[in-house]
Design a protein around this nucleic acid. Structure first.
Length: 112
DNA sequence: CGAGTTTGACCGGCGC
DNA sequence: GCGCCGGTCAAACTCG
């Protein structure tokens, strides 16, 4: 599938099963955005990958929602926390997860 | 053959 | 009311 240059990005393996269901170019950020959905049963978690067409090294992954099945060795205290009861704060931790250690990741610098 | 992936089009929401 | 943008789905194609 060498149709599009830049679509074949190597996303970091997080231990989940993702299915790409869309890709669009966001002008707001001037970058591409891929949409992934968790294929796990009952899992409504989603993942979004953003990267600049001119800067392949500027890959960032944004997790949306939370998995209710555990990834691989994700030890969750509550065995069956169907909803987000105890790990409420823990789920949003994913929203700030960023893969790829880019030296120029001044996208979301804390110290400004 | 199966699975996964890709592209285009459609829809909804918002702004002006 | 219209235009624009973002998000999702379906179909088609390719690879192993």
């Amino acid at each position: 599938m060498d149709r599009e240059a830049g679509s074949r990005l190597q996303l970091p393996e997080d231990g989940y099963e993702w299915k790409k269901y869309g890709q669009k170019f966001i002008k707001n950020i001037d970058k591409f955005r891929s949409y992934f959905k968790c294929q796990k049963a009952g899992c409504k978690a989603k993942k979004q990958a953003e990267w600049s067409e001119t800067e392949p090294g500027d890959l960032r992954v944004v997790y949306e929602g939370v998995h209710n099945h555990g990834s691989s060795s994700q030890d969750q205290s509550g065995s069956s926390q169907s909803g987000a009861s105890s790990m409420s704060s823990n789920q949003y931790n994913l929203l700030n997860q960023v893969f790829g250690d880019n030296p120029h990741s001044d996208y979301r610098r804390s110290g400004d």
